[in-house]
């Protein structure tokens, strides 16, 4: 077997894992599976693309950083895009999810997220048409690094970025006050309120973090593959499967689940062919639900 699947799998796994963090957070803190999360990815990517365009218009063409295909404009645009996507998630919560949550029927919220997903995705198609866009059309030469593996500088940079972000979120959840509050709310919302935790603030943070990471995952896809309105929706099944495989509520679990699914997909592409890639997440999902529905790091339902 060609070892190249390791690199491909790690990259896909990083995208899935970053998306799964947002899904697992909304699921454990707000208690619903957000079907519009994939479309937040796509919106974040298009927003970043627009910001890159705006920066280029302001400062002229900026030369990329030595071996990479992108320069500081993309990094700045990514930061702005993360803010935008977090804000979009907050807005969606404010006008839709929050009101339905107040009525206490969580499955109605899931349905609303499904409707919102459809509307968001089609709105992108309306604004940008369904033809793909690209951050850069430059072709990068993949450098051999032994064992028959080749990797481009972009891919190394994005893997490092993922590792840094995941570490940061993990530290935030385990070491900071807001992280402790988020975990408290996910374990017992009533008790959290009793001890004086501002639940509304926790909810806001959850959307901000989830939206920002969705944007990064989308931009990774945009840099490495292409930008399409459907790009996020197509990631939804692997993202959910990763969150469930890792155990709902667990951030290390979501990332590990993402990596497992990414690597399995990449391996399956070599064995069965690329057209069956999307079925892998489903097979893993069904296996987890039959064998260990609480996932790798999950705890029993409370």
């Amino acid at each position: 077997m060609n070892m190249q699947f390791l690199v491909d799998g790690l990259l896909t796994g990083s995208m899935i894992g970053l998306g799964a963090i947002g899904v697992t957070l909304t699921y454990s803190i707000l208690r619903f599976s957000n079907f519009s999360h994939g479309d937040l990815m796509a919106w974040g990517t298009y927003a970043t693309l627009m910001f890159v365009g705006a920066i280029t218009a302001l400062f002229g063409k900026v030369a990329p950083i030595a071996p990479l295909s992108f320069g500081w404009p993309l990094l700045l645009a990514l930061a702005l895009g993360m803010l935008f996507t977090g804000g979009l998630a907050l807005l969606l919560d404010k006008i839709l999810f929050q009101r339905l949550r107040a009525k206490g029927q969580m499955i109605i919220v899931v349905m609303a997220s499904f409707g919102a997903s459809m509307a968001l995705r089609s709105l992108l198609e309306f604004l940008f048409t369904s033809s793909p866009a690209y951050f850069s059309r430059a072709i990068q030469i993949a450098k051999p690094i032994g064992f028959g593996i080749r990797i481009t500088p972009d891919q190394i940079a994005l893997l490092l970025l993922t590792a840094a972000l995941v570490t940061a979120v993990h530290l935030l959840m385990t070491r900071s006050q807001i992280g402790r509050e988020m975990r408290a709310v996910s374990q017992n919302i009533g008790l959290a309120r009793v001890v004086g935790i501002d639940v509304a603030r926790v909810v806001r943070f959850t959307w901000l973090i989830g939206g920002a990471l969705a944007c990064v995952a989308g931009v990774m896809i945009g840099v490495l593959v292409q930008i399409r309105p459907l790009m996020g929706f197509d990631m939804l099944l692997p993202v959910f499967a990763a969150a469930i495989l890792g155990g709902i509520g667990s951030i290390p679990g979501a990332v590990l689940g993402g990596l497992i699914i990414g690597l399995s997909e990449a391996a399956a592409v070599q064995i069965f062919g690329a057209e069956w890639r999307a079925a892998i997440a489903f097979v893993i999902l069904m296996a987890v639900l039959f064998v260990r529905p609480i996932g790798l790091f999950g705890v029993g339902e409370r």
Binding site: S33, F35, F282, L285, M286
Partner: peptide, 13 residues
């Protein structure tokens, strides 16, 4: 109930 939703979504895919 969310697990059913996610799984049926997978069936369609």
């Amino acid at each position: 109930s969310d697990y059913l939703a996610i799984t049926t979504f997978g069936v369609a895919v």
